[in-house]
Design a binder for these strands. Sequence first.
DNA 1: ACGTTATGTCAGCCATGTTGACTTATTGGC
DNA 2: GCCAATAAGTCAACATGGCTGACATAACGT
Lengths: 193, 193
Amino acid sequence: MADITSEGPSEHLGATGHSLPAASDDRPSSLVDLIGYIELFYFAYRDFTCDPDAILAQYGFGRAHHRVLHFVHRIPGLKVAELLDILKITKQSLARVLKQLVDEGFIIQKAGNEDRRERRLYLSAKGARLNDKLTQIQAKRIEGALANLGPGADALARNFLFGMITEKNRPQVETLIKGQRADTSEAVPDCNT
Amino acid sequence: MADITSEGPSEHLGATGHSLPAASDDRPSSLVDLIGYIELFYFAYRDFTCDPDAILAQYGFGRAHHRVLHFVHRIPGLKVAELLDILKITKQSLARVLKQLVDEGFIIQKAGNEDRRERRLYLSAKGARLNDKLTQIQAKRIEGALANLGPGADALARNFLFGMITEKNRPQVETLIKGQRADTSEAVPDCNT
DNA sequence: ACGTTATGTCAGCCATGTTGACTTATTGGC
DNA sequence: GCCAATAAGTCAACATGGCTGACATAACGT
């Protein structure tokens, strides 16, 4: 299969004007029907992240900084260990960007009240301002994408994305989405299985 | 807004069992309602890419190799310049991974028939086999995500992702999704605007 | 007092993106 | 047939953000 002399994929994603056609009718979606998703997901994510990237670059920051800002905003008083569990990166990777954000006054660290070893993380006003900018530009893109779809699209799009997440990670994400601290015990550490 | 002393986000994404709730009813989706998408998109993309990453690692390859394999499979005889237009990376970045793929026999280069300066790219049988593995594992995840949603979910999910793509890039992606060579003239070069 | 825990830090590696400059082969127009 | 333009390859150098393993410090709890 997939002979190099083949003439290329022959799915008939006919050009029905402006909307993308789904997998043809009622046939179970074949592998070849789903290839488009791989591309759509890639291009969508690339454009989704490029808006904030452009803003962050003005501050000398990158995507990694964005993630830290985002989750600290989401869960004020987040502990470093919790952030590591969410991002699933190493202490060292986090330390690099976190130090910058703290040094430049975007994030504030406070020792925990009950356990003073903990460094609880908070956004400063400056950090909140930057994060708001990033959130707004991404929200605008999402709104635009939803606007052209019917009602019910919101719930369905959320559930589609949620279903793309590895099953064991879903409880953690679901909790996180509510802005709550997540129990990470079941989430997969590396990749899957 | 977003005071550091705030108690955190207070959206009521109530836990309605297993499915994620959409933005509450009919109110226009507020900024805070859309934050969940940012997280869902991040986690979904992370898990989506981790399956192929694990396989690629066995070959000493990375995500960049995957993209090359994918698009060469999609459009056999792709020119290097076309690939650069699709991936929007620099010649140097592409050269590194492409050279590896060619040297190790996953991709075959043939001078163009009409213009022998062109290097048309094709998958070898070996390359096709690897690409199939990667496609299949990702297709399985997509199928799983769609399976739990109603009919019509396929079209809607595709259109949602398509809508997330920067408008100027959509014609290129639409053409690509059909497995055709894309006219890239309107697509945005760097990021947006 | 001591082992555990939370965090920070050091040195160094890898993948993949970037730039600018230069080479080579080939084409197509004159 | 000459020559500018084009397709591609290549070199050196750099940035970001992952990774590892090892070790330091401070605070907690028994």
